[in-house]
Each structure stands twice: as C-alpha cells, then as structure tokens.
Write a protein that binds this DNA or RNA. Structure first.
Length: 156
DNA sequence: GCCAACGTTGGC
DNA sequence: GCCAACGTTGGC
C-alpha cells in the first residue's frame, strides 16, 4: 500500500531545486542520524511512496515541492567516510548503522509556509506541527496528503 | 543568537 | 536501569 511522508531538508544543503537539478532528479537522503527517522527509511518506505519535500532551518520554512521514494534502502555511505560530518566511527560496512533511501524530486511547488499549515484545522494532527516535534522524517496520512496536494497547492 | 524540547551518553 | 549533563534541532 502506498504511503506518504514528509522529509525535511535544509535548503542550504539540498533544496528542491538542487534535487531537481540532480541526475535523474534523484538524491540520496544522507545524513539522517536519528533512529526513528532511519527506521522509517529502512523498514517502512517503499518505492513510489509520496514525499512532501520540506525546507527547514531557513528563512522560509515550509513545503517546497513533491517527490517520491525512488528505491530500496541501503547503507548511508557518509557513515563510513571519516572526512564527512556524518561520519560514525561505530559503523562499518559489515555492520552499517544508518540506512537511507533515494528520493526523486517530481516538482517544485509554490511554498506552503509552516504558518499556512498551522492555519488549517484539517492538518492539526500533522506530526511536524506538534509541540517540540523535531523528527526529520514523518508519516503523512492520506487525508493530510490530499488536503495539501489538492487544496493547498491548487490555491497557492 | 535565543531557547524550548527532545535524544543520547555515560557514570553510578 | 536511572537520570543528570550534554548536544542537537529548528522556529523565531
């Protein structure tokens, strides 16, 4: 069954434009170092799942585009790279700790700012809107997905 | 830069 | 296994 996700990226690192400009519009979702977010990629995501591409830690945080999960999980190569800021000395190719998926950008959309998401009662239960929520990958319900990709993106 | 909230670490 | 200390996230 198809599922839906919201994935945060810092646009200074990888923006929706960067992803669209990448080969096959696809980027490896490197750098996740949170077990819950990892588990979503490792255990729950399937190729073709819908992704809301969210810009975080920037001047205008919000949903910036649509994407999809592009393949099956594999070890995040940055965990083995001692020069990477994502290096994890406790990980090894034999015993990888961090898994990721590839994400294919589909299109840039008019930005839906965080404040706009908060303004709709229909989205009140979205995980990223909960107090103190910091998780960089969160599931989105079909109803939330329809509301955002339908109503919000069309009126924007 | 501030700071609330949360996750992780490590001593005991 | 507890929990204080520390580090990180991310909006503002």
């Amino acid at each position: 069954m198809m599922q839906y996700w919201l994935m945060k990226s810092e646009p200074d690192e990888v923006s929706i434009d960067d992803a669209l400009a990448a080969p096959a519009q696809t980027v490896a979702w490197t750098g996740v170092r949170n077990y819950q977010a990892r588990n979503f990629m490792r255990d729950a995501m399937r190729a073709g799942d819908g992704v809301l591409f969210y810009h975080s830690s920037c001047a205008e945080p919000g949903i910036a585009g649509l994407a999809e999960v592009a393949g099956t999980p594999y070890p995040d190569p940055t965990q083995f790279d001692s020069a990477s800021k994502y290096y994890d000395p406790k990980a090894s190719p034999q015993q990888p700790r961090w898994m990721l998926v590839d994400v294919r950008a589909l299109k840039k959309t008019p930005l839906i700012p965080l404040a706009a998401l908060r303004a709709h009662e229909e989205l009140a239960d979205m995980q990223i809107l909960q107090r103190g929520s910091r998780l960089s990958i969160t599931p989105v319900t079909p109803a939330q997905w329809r509301f955002i990709t339908g109503r919000l993106m069309k009126q924007a």
